[in-house]
Amino acid sequence: MATFKKKTKTNQEIPTASLPDIIFMLLIFFMVTTVLRENEVRVRTQLPKAEALTKIDQKRLVSYIWIGPEKLGDFKLGPTAVQIDDALIPDVTGIRTIMYRKLVEQPKLIVSLRVDESSEMGIVQDVEHELREGGTLRINYSTKRLVN
């Protein structure tokens, strides 16, 4: 009995010529969406979790204030410190001028408070008081989504 071997003429290889293009498309997507970290955070901010969240869509309106125990290296933590942009703020009363200047540049400024969950309210209230004096009234307590 003769065996028939069906010969197929179709090419079984996947065309790889367009592979670089696909990769480039992905690359461009990630390049566009990437925001390189602007400043190094020198305080630990473990954010609390909450349910009633709102999103801030316009990132350019946001200015951050970090409040939390200072990172000292070797996983050691110092006393609670306040950081704006790249610098720790030794005197809280200086915040009003910093924030006022930011407000002049961006009148719709939103201040995002990234506060470590173990911080005490005293320092947060001091910062809020300064924000009121500086006129930056829109704030946002940065929190993570609570997952049940």
Binding site: K55, I56, I110, S112, Y141, S142
Partner: peptide
């Protein structure tokens, strides 16, 4: 691609919005 994949942070800022009273 791998470099940008690793460095990308796609997180939308979420939080509780408040408006402080004027001084």
């Amino acid at each position: 691609l791998i470099f940008f994949l690793v460095t990308t942070v796609i997180d939308v800022d979420t939080g509780i919005g408040m408006v402080l009273p004027p001084p």
